[in-house]
Simulated assay, not measured.
Amino acid sequence: MLKKFEDLSTPLVADACVRLGEPLRSAPTGILPVVAGQRVAGRALPVRHYGSVDVFLEAFTLAEPGDVLVIDNAGRHDEACIGDLAVLEAEAAGVTGVVVWGLHRDTPDLVEIGLPVFSYGRHAPGPVRLDPRDPDALTTARFGEQEVTVGDVVFADDDGVLFVAAARVDAVLDVARTLFSTERDQARRIRAGETLRTQTRFDAYLAGRAEDPSYTFRQHLRRIGGAIEE
């Protein structure tokens, strides 16, 4: 999956979802890779954290090569729920990345390990609680407003994290590639001196909107085969 994603980005995947009418399922804003430039794409391996690392170890027994560990720590900012040992174990289990609805610690060690980890920041204290565990702790993970299962694929880069239903991934990536090609051509033409206003026939759009105030720029772009917004 990472190979299919290598020339794309989460903005392109998001725009492709909009173009196809797919649910736009993104992590809450603010999530970043521990090391800038890291990228992740793979089947979701969901897990809910309740204060002990044992739930991660159990999740790893279900892992398939290429999975991305999706940790639901309820967005807590009072504890870091994952550090170097859990990430090393994830790597040993064939997991190719970790995304956390919460915080991480052991930052220098995570940088050295190199496995992509995405979180909402670093925090020295780990958990001091041990809460009761739900029966679905290894089948679903909440991530903001999203509910993530093994039926989802995770895409992550410097712009954020997205979740796409596995059954729709190929269609979404096909459209994302088309948008990528269109936008790269538009960028090339701007650098060559052809402004974006010229490329998008912006004067024609303004004239069309003057005649029909409901005429939107997105409708105009679709009519002429442009991109930009989605």
Score class of each variant (00 low, 15 high):
3 K>W: 03
4 K>T: 07
7 D>L: 10
9 S>M: 04
13 V>F: 03
17 C>R: 00
18 V>D: 13
21 G>C: 13
22 E>W: 02
23 P>V: 00
24 L>T: 11
25 R>Q: 12
27 A>D: 12
29 T>R: 13
30 G>E: 15
30 G>S: 07
33 P>M: 14
34 V>E: 00
37 G>H: 14
40 V>H: 03
41 A>Q: 12
43 R>V: 01
44 A>G: 09
44 A>H: 11
45 L>N: 06
47 V>G: 04
47 V>H: 02
48 R>M: 10
48 R>I: 08
52 S>P: 04
54 D>W: 11
54 D>A: 07
54 D>S: 07
62 L>Y: 01
64 E>K: 12
65 P>A: 15
66 G>W: 09
69 L>Y: 09
69 L>N: 05
71 I>S: 01
72 D>R: 05
73 N>S: 12
76 R>T: 03
77 H>Q: 13
82 I>T: 15
84 D>T: 02
84 D>V: 08
87 V>F: 02
87 V>I: 13
88 L>K: 15
92 A>E: 14
95 V>P: 01
98 V>E: 00
98 V>A: 06
100 V>G: 02
104 H>P: 05
105 R>C: 08
109 D>F: 11
110 L>G: 07
110 L>W: 00
114 G>M: 04
117 V>N: 02
121 G>T: 08
122 R>E: 07
123 H>Y: 14
124 A>R: 14
127 P>E: 12
133 R>D: 00
136 D>V: 05
136 D>W: 05
137 A>E: 07
142 R>F: 05
151 G>R: 12
151 G>W: 02
151 G>V: 07
154 V>S: 02
155 F>L: 09
156 A>N: 11
158 D>C: 09
158 D>A: 11
161 V>F: 13
166 A>E: 14
167 A>H: 09
170 D>Y: 04
173 L>F: 13
173 L>M: 07
174 D>N: 07
177 R>Y: 10
178 T>N: 04
179 L>R: 10
180 F>K: 05
181 S>Q: 12
186 Q>A: 15
188 R>W: 13
189 R>S: 13
189 R>D: 06
190 I>Y: 15
191 R>I: 12
191 R>N: 15
191 R>M: 12
192 A>E: 09
198 T>Q: 06
203 D>E: 01
206 L>I: 08
208 G>I: 03
211 E>S: 15
216 T>S: 15
216 T>G: 03
216 T>P: 05
219 Q>C: 00
